[in-house]
């Protein structure tokens, strides 16, 4: 029992130090938000008019859930970069030489990521409200949507940890993260209805976790959701979101933990 208590206490200390970074390097959060706002403006005002929604509805309401998911997916890169930074600066070595719970470095890190992204999500929602995005369903559904998004964030954080522990430098973490996550968020229904994609890409987009999350969020927030096609993920976005998130966690959590243990060389 005291072991568990120590693990939690150590995890909180690590979360604290990771969150301290946010006000100390405000540029990190500011640019993450500005990047998302740039996507909002680009799609809402530049491409939006050219993208008709099957079944009608406001493109801006359609867009915002896609932006939420995209931003939270990109957060994995931030995680990867700061883990890689801790590795190269020797901080991970210092932690490993201390009589602390071994799990705390990763559990504290990923927990901090959830708190951080709650903040990011809040700012994005305010931005969305300003350009005409609305929550049209009940409060309960809204919170279910938010919980789903944060659960997804948690899985992305573990992907980020795994990536950060696997690369030799901070720059590589940045590049690899961008190279993987950027196309994944675009090969989805986040910005355009999947029906508008070439036939070859449609199944890929439909089975993309980002699409499931976006579709589920649209459904729970009561935003236009033309994703509903006759494919299985299209018909069950909420179920598929849970399945995807659990699967990603089941893959990347053990991988990251194994990678961390393997630092022993």
């Amino acid at each position: 029992m005291s072991r568990l208590r120590n693990a939690v206490a150590d995890g909180i200390v690590i979360s604290w130090r990771n969150l301290k970074r946010v006000p100390r390097i405000p540029e990190l959060a500011i640019f993450a938000i500005l990047q998302s706002i740039m996507f909002v403006l680009l799609f809402a005002f530049v491409f939006g008019g050219a993208i008709p929604l099957p079944g009608g509805g406001s493109y801006r309401e359609f867009l915002m859930p896609g932006i939420f998911v995209q931003t939270l997916a990109f957060a994995a890169i931030t995680t990867a970069v700061s883990i890689a930074d801790d590795m190269t600066k020797g901080l991970i070595d210092r932690f490993r030489s201390l009589p602390m719970a071994r799990s705390a470095v990763l559990s504290g890190r990923t927990f901090a990521d959830i708190l951080y992204n709650i903040g990011i999500l809040a700012v994005l929602m305010v931005t969305g409200l300003a350009i005409g995005w609305r929550v049209n369903d009940g409060v309960l559904d809204f919170f279910a949507g938010v919980v789903l998004l944060l659960f997804f964030t948690y899985a992305m954080a573990w992907i980020g940890v795994f990536l950060g522990l696997s690369v030799p430098t901070v720059e590589v973490a940045q590049q690899v993260g961008f190279l993987v996550i950027f196309p994944v968020t675009f090969l989805s229904n986040a910005f355009v209805p999947t029906e508008t994609l070439p036939a070859v890409l449609q199944p890929i987009a439909e089975w993309n976790p980002v699409s499931s999350l976006t579709g589920a969020t649209r459904e729970l927030f009561g935003n236009p959701n033309p994703f509903i096609s006759d494919s299985f993920p299209g018909l069950h976005p909420i179920l598929m979101s849970v399945v995807w998130t659990v699967t990603l966690l089941a893959i990347f959590m053990p991988l990251a933990i194994r990678k961390y243990r393997a630092i022993d060389g």
């Binding site: 200390v13 210092r94 932690f95």
Partner: peptide
Amino acid sequence: LSGQYAAIDENLTGRENLWMFGRLYQ
């Protein structure tokens, strides 16, 4: 352990660094 590469958290103050390592030292 004090190594060749100063392993401290650059984004924390000196005091915060020491407090953190102290807490992790239980």
